[in-house]
């Protein structure tokens, strides 16, 4: 589909519904249609944010990386070519920024390793799995997810970065293995291998944490 037809369809006041592909929206934005970009943001902002949040494991850093990701999309919109899916291009940008942010954070943590830990002010600054409740807490139904979530986040955070990113991309972002290979820059077999290791590691870690599928489904706590 040509650029002109894309612009024409976008500028005729047509509704930017879900039937319009990501690639068409991006081409429309390239042609100067700001609404197309807004549609892309509405469509992919939350999944990208969750990918970033699960990758970096820190909310405030995730928010920064998210903003940076979309700014880079705007800046690099002229370079986009519809050879691959937009999600592949979008998650590649997000993933690279996550890697950079994680490395910066690892350097920062290494430099302040002996520094006293700062008190956490709410959930804004917390890392995934840090808000794990005491195992002896009373298992109430309404508090089930609040207790299970930190366990899952801790299990996810325990994965190596290369396994974690593959698992997140496939499990939460729904990106096929082949595209994950493009995003991460490795072969598809490597991606699948990392996925198997990630699943096995999670299974063990969840077992260690007392969380299995039955408990989760039943709403029972690990301690419970």
């Amino acid at each position: 589909m040509g650029k002109g037809s894309t612009r024409g369809s976008m500028s005729n006041g047509g509704v930017l519904g879900p039937e319009i592909s990501d690639e068409r929206l991006m081409l429309a934005f390239q042609a100067g249609d700001a609404r197309a970009f807004e549609a892309l943001v509405r469509r992919h902002r939350a999944p990208v944010f969750n990918f970033i949040l699960r990758f970096v494991g820190h909310r405030s850093r995730a928010e920064d990386v998210l903003q940076e990701t979309w700014l880079k999309v705007v800046r690099s919109a002229r370079e986009y070519e519809p050879k691959a899916k937009l999600t592949t291009w979008l998650y590649t940008i997000a993933r690279n920024l996550c890697v950079d942010s994680t490395r910066k954070e690892s350097y920062r943590q290494a430099s302040s390793l002996e520094a006293p830990a700062a008190g956490t002010d709410g959930d804004e600054g917390r890392a995934l799995g840090e808000s794990l409740p005491d195992e002896g807490a009373s298992p109430e139904r309404g508090a089930h997810n609040a207790r299970l979530r930190p366990l899952l986040e801790r299990a996810l955070a325990s994965l190596p970065e290369e396994q974690r990113e593959v698992f997140i991309l496939r499990e939460y972002s729904g990106i096929p293995f082949k595209e994950i290979a493009e995003v991460t820059g490795v072969s598809e077999n490597t991606v699948k291998s990392r996925m198997r290791y990630a699943l096995e590691a999670l299974r063990r870690r969840l077992g260690e944490l007392g969380v299995d599928g039955d408990l989760a489904e039943d709403g029972r706590t690990v301690a419970g």
Partner: peptide, 20 residues
């Protein structure tokens, strides 16, 4: 499938509106 079912309990968080 067990790991997937368990990890699926980790729900998505809404994206922040800050900076939008």
């Amino acid at each position: 499938r067990g790991v997937r079912v368990t990890m699926a309990q980790l729900s998505d968080e809404p994206a922040p509106d800050a900076g939008l």
